[in-house]
Amino acid sequence: MNNFMRVAAIKIVSLLLVLFCVSFLTFLLYYYAPGDKALAIANARYIGEGSASAELVEQIRLETGIDRPLFVQFYYWAQDIIQLDFGVSLISQEPVDEIFVSQLWETMELALSALLLGMSVAIPLSLISVWKPKSFIDRFAIALSSIGAAIPSYWLGLIFIFVFAANLQWLPAYGTGSLSHLILPASTLGLWVLSSQTRLIRSFLLEASTAPFLEALKIRGVGSKELFCRHIVRHAFVPFVTMLGLELAFLLEGAVIVEVVFARGGIGSLLVHSVMGRDFPIIQCIVLFSAVTYVTINSAVEIFQWFMNPVSQQR
């Protein structure tokens, strides 16, 4: 347990260090964004398509302290971020955290549904594929993972809308608000999860099935079923969990195309709108969130891997 505490402490310290670096880089993105930021803020906040007066731009410059040195600005920015104060949107003037959380919920809904749909097919398909190599299911799994990876989400989304909404009229073509609105986007994203995860899980299982210790187990008379279920699957479990974590992190930010096609909200489309409108506080919040998600999930997975690996626990 002491060992575990030591590993966890190291991970947490390195996580904090990475987060600090990421925050600084996020701030640099804003600091070195091209153009006059005071003018950009004036346009985003009040103008839209038009011209901001020099007085207004000057007023914003004074108000926001945009001309202060980099580290002074970063200090004040970081102070707010630590208190989870991301400021207000330059466009809507609504608190960034409120906008972000409402969109995060929609993204989580979509990402988790897609993950559930994709995984519920990918896991059994991969298991059967490796259990019965060169069978119909194996060939089907290979074909599905290749086709799924080759089909762009945008195209698949349109096809789903065309078939299930426009022609069969079973489901709504776009929007949010009910379970029926979730099915087509979750299936679009779920098929991508299915294909990528089938390919990965299958390769993890195949790699595990060639491990040298399996020969020893066979000599000791362990049956093929036990060998597969207890040893190969377990051996493939560690890389699988790593990929699962990263897949979730990717889905949280990578669903943008599906969000746009189905006219849903979500973090991805929020980021697109914010970049178009130069809404810096929202951009910074999302970039920071993405980084924190990846780093946190990665660290959690590493701790999990350590926990699962008896060899590392003895060190």
């Binding site: 749909l117 519920s120 097919v121 259990w131 029926s180 779920g190």
Partner: peptide, 25 residues
């Protein structure tokens, strides 16, 4: 048992696709 595993994998997907037919707008 193979069929059962295969079927269970598709149930969630199929439920998602077929279930909504009964949803009344």
């Amino acid at each position: 048992s193979l069929r059962a595993i295969l079927a269970s994998g598709f149930i969630a997907f199929a439920a998602g696709m077929v279930g909504p037919v009964s949803i009344n707008f």
